[in-house]
Design a protein around this nucleic acid. Sequence first.
DNA 1: GGAAAAACTTGACGACTGTCAAGGAATAGC
DNA 2: GCTATTCCTTGACAGTCGTCAAGTTTTTCC
Lengths: 212, 212
Amino acid sequence: MTEVASRKQDRIARRQVDKFDARRTELAVATLHTLAELGYARTSLREIAQNSEFSHGVLHYYFEDKRDLITEAVRQYEVVCVTRYDEVVARAKSAEQLRDEFVAMFFETLEQDATLHRLWYDLRNQSLFDASFRAAVLEIDGHREAMVWRVVHRYAELLGGTPAASASMIYVTLDGIFQRALLHHLSGNAETVARLRAELPEAVGLMVTVAE
Amino acid sequence: MTEVASRKQDRIARRQVDKFDARRTELAVATLHTLAELGYARTSLREIAQNSEFSHGVLHYYFEDKRDLITEAVRQYEVVCVTRYDEVVARAKSAEQLRDEFVAMFFETLEQDATLHRLWYDLRNQSLFDASFRAAVLEIDGHREAMVWRVVHRYAELLGGTPAASASMIYVTLDGIFQRALLHHLSGNAETVARLRAELPEAVGLMVTVAE
DNA sequence: GGAAAAACTTGACGACTGTCAAGGAATAGC
DNA sequence: GCTATTCCTTGACAGTCGTCAAGTTTTTCC
């Protein structure tokens, strides 16, 4: 084969791979939405296919098996959800502004992306029973922790103080609040959500100590 | 029917009800263990029956349907898990002792009853998708909140201070720590669990403010 | 001990599951 | 425009699921 022909071959192969990956991603997104709607326990391949424009057989053309598909869907969740607060951090001019916009964003995504978030917790929980997704889950959990740490760290900086607890502790606290708010939001318990919202700024305040 | 006969009938009926309930509970406990082992998504009625000494058909003799059975199993979880720290509170003579014994118990049940706890989180999560268990879940969650509140409240009392946050906030924080420790415990990540354990006393300390 | 009631087993049903092979439709390369 | 490859659909498979009816075993009551 000449060099030109070889390079051409490469280009074609690459384009095919790109196309293949694009379709994979497309199907993973459809999977993500189906999972968000039904939950892990009740999501079938046929149901996923119905939420896409293809038939159920195509899933085995693009994915090894169901695990492979769902793992890819989890990865899509990460793309969507793990840089959420970065713009808030970037534009904050004062500690107060950062805190308030963080709280606002926190409850905005809670309500707007509720089904997506419940899926995340569902999959994180599945990983307690099944080691398949565990690596992906631990990775995303780490990214979530880093994300809230950037917020609190910057908040402390703007206040001229330092975080009062480790990244781990701060993450599990905020995540715990989020989970509970989500449960009550989906239960139609608006006043409990409102109460959590009212308490969140104070909780954030407790996470930073300012030297006197 | 004479009065005597009627009372006798009552006694018989009551005994039958007791027997009926006893068997129901027995089957609910078997269900609980199966769920703890396999998780909600993969637990079938035949599997449950195999973990009991009966055949799968009997489950429909004692329970309306699968939901009814699982709801009863959740209730059994409550019986087991919701008064765990009360003895610790009762015997504590000092704040330090209460804190240390709480931390010890926290990680003891984490490791000893890990499968049961992962089930709890699994079911709490199911209630985000399916309203069936929601009432039971919210009720148990409330009891768990009250349980940790008793601990922190007593701790503050012994220290001569007051809790620094609401019962809600304190619960979600401790629950968040527990969930994360559970994830890493089941992932075989012992050093992360150890780190959380080392940080827990400090976190508890932050939950109480002492007037100076 | 015999009849009635309760407790339990067995086997079957229709529906649904993940997987995959066979074949049709679309596209790419010449 | 023809061929080869890629893409996608269809239908079937073996298995599992919750449910339930029919029948057997055990217990209860007189």
